[in-house]
Amino acid sequence: MGYEILQREVLREGIVRLRFSVPLISRRALAGQFVIVRADQGGERVPLTIAAYDRAAETVDLIVQAVGASTMSLAEKRVGQSVCDLVGPLGMPTCFAGVKRAVVVGGGVGCAIALPLAQGLREAGATVQSVIGFRSREQVILTEEFSALSERVFLTTDDGSAGEKGNVCRPLARLMKEGNIDAVFVAGPLPMMKYAAETTRPYGIKTVASMNPIMIDGTGMCGCCRVRVGGEMKFACVDGPDFDAHLIDFDEAISRLSAYRPFEQRARERHCNLLKKEED
């Protein structure tokens, strides 16, 4: 029973890449789509963007950052172990139609979402320039992968310990000034996507954000993932997760993402205490 982990790679402390054999997902997956994972019986349903897929090998890669109890349980899994549920591909694939020159912006572990977009753009015949930002050098991931797909990669860190000091908005603004860009695709924390959208807005360049709201079923049934886009209510799992970043109500999305924060903190502490006990 379950879905076995074929490969596991630690990208950084607390960030792992897991490879699953799951033909039902790999054969139809497209860039921008996500899966829902349940690590164990009784576990939470966690939405994760598909980081890579291989149709021939029938595999799907997920990149997991251990931030809460559920993602910790997932990130702790070893090769040969299984997750009990894995379902997808969910959501609409990212639309690359008409895009010839693109900028891909990734923030933190959102780079795991941005990477398949860069790949999808290349496969669709577009050129890619990548802007990837992290808190500091210890968190930097996927630089080689982005380099292989991009004409140029702009690396930023908040503290300047690697690449350019600051956030992704500065190199993004320079690229906007250079011009000749058809579309910008952003994936990362909500505040970062909000500011990226503000950076591109004056230039009127189409900007697409990959949203990451709280979800349960991921198939439209619960309505938990609703996002306000251009004043209209949209379900990220059915109509998204991509939306026009210039129309998204990011402040509302940020507020909605915090709905269960006290619970999440308690669950995280409980999980960490359990781990400590196991180690003792």
């Binding site: 039902l24 997902i25 139809r28 379902v87 997808g88 591909p89 969910l90 198939t219």
Partner: peptide, 9 residues
């Protein structure tokens, strides 16, 4: 289980 009509197949 875990098979969504219109998505997984």
């Amino acid at each position: 289980l875990n098979a969504v009509g219109g998505k997984s197949f």
